[in-house]
Amino acid sequence: MLMSSGDKAAKLHYGPSTFRVLRPGQHVFCAVSGEVILLEELRYWSAQHQEAYASPEIATKRLLGEV
């Protein structure tokens, strides 16, 4: 069976205020929880660590080194 880009995780380059799609897909995974994050719902990431986060709480804990 052929997979569409929606069946795979996207690969992104995270900038300070936006991200660039390097490999098409519909989602990425939270770097901490592993939760699927649809690209249209992606709001939290770290440009420094090149990671996506599922919530502001997870992002804050990660950036403070708590997880």
Rank of each mutant, 00 (worst) to 15 (best):
M1E: 15
M1I: 09
M1G: 11
L2Y: 10
L2N: 09
M3T: 12
M3F: 13
S4G: 09
S4H: 13
S4R: 05
S5I: 15
S5G: 07
S5C: 05
G6D: 06
G6P: 13
G6L: 09
G6M: 08
G6F: 03
G6A: 10
D7M: 15
K8V: 06
K8A: 08
K8E: 14
A9P: 10
A9V: 03
A9W: 06
A9K: 06
A9G: 06
A10E: 01
A10T: 02
K11V: 13
K11D: 09
L12P: 03
L12K: 00
L12S: 02
H13R: 06
H13K: 15
G15P: 01
G15H: 01
P16F: 07
P16R: 11
S17L: 08
S17D: 15
T18W: 01
T18V: 11
T18S: 10
R20D: 05
R20E: 12
L22S: 01
R23K: 09
G25Y: 08
Q26K: 09
Q26F: 11
H27N: 13
V28P: 06
C30Q: 09
C30T: 10
C30L: 05
A31G: 15
A31S: 08
A31Y: 02
A31F: 01
A31W: 00
S33G: 10
S33V: 10
G34D: 12
G34K: 01
E35Y: 04
E35I: 11
V36K: 09
I37T: 00
L39M: 08
E40L: 05
E40C: 07
E40H: 05
E41N: 14
E41M: 03
L42I: 01
R43M: 14
R43S: 06
Y44M: 06
W45L: 05
S46I: 01
S46L: 08
S46R: 01
S46D: 04
A47Q: 08
A47I: 00
Q48V: 13
H49D: 12
H49I: 02
Q50G: 03
Q50K: 04
E51H: 10
E51M: 02
Y53D: 03
Y53E: 00
Y53C: 02
S55Q: 12
S55Y: 08
S55I: 06
P56H: 10
I58M: 04
A59F: 12
A59S: 10
T60I: 00
K61P: 03
K61N: 03
R62M: 09
G65H: 10
G65K: 02
E66I: 14
E66W: 04
V67R: 02
V67H: 01
